[in-house]
């Protein structure tokens, strides 16, 4: 996220991602309750479908962006020494990006294999 995203954009993204995460979580819950995949092959077919895999990836990205904005807000509020804050932000950004890549890789592998 660029520096421009610092105020209004971060706030708007936080709200948009919250809506999407909420809706998709509800969908996930309903699927798991009423149409849960029976076995691994079944699950693979479901999650590997073009619509579900893209929606799932969007979900993961939304969760990570939402987390980033939230954590950044907490650090701006409470951690004032700029070096410590920058270091913490760096570590968290790396961790979030790593999680995103890992999830993307899993979703791609499911489609390929």
């Amino acid at each position: 996220m660029s520096r421009k995203a610092s105020g209004l954009k971060a706030w708007a993204i936080q709200r948009l991602t919250a809506i999407y995460v909420g809706l998709f979580a509800l969908y996930l819950l309903l699927v798991l309750l009423f149409a849960a995949p029976a076995d691994y092959a079944d699950w693979k077919a479901w999650v590997g479908g073009p619509v579900v895999s893209v929606a799932m990836l969007l979900f993961v990205v939304s969760v990570l962006m939402h987390a980033w904005i939230g954590v950044r807000d907490v650090l701006i509020d409470y951690v004032h020494p700029i070096a410590i804050r920058a270091a913490l932000l760096g570590v968290i950004a790396l961790a979030l990006v790593a999680m995103g890549l890992w999830a993307a890789q899993a979703l791609i592998l499911v489609r390929l294999t």
């Binding site: 610092s6 105020g7 209004l8 971060a10 706030w11 950044r72 807000d73 701006i76 509020d77």
Partner: peptide
């Protein structure tokens, strides 16, 4: 003047 993370958007 209100843009940026501090002046307005510290309000939670």
């Amino acid at each position: 003047a209100l843009e940026g993370p501090y002046k307005l958007f510290r309000c939670h």
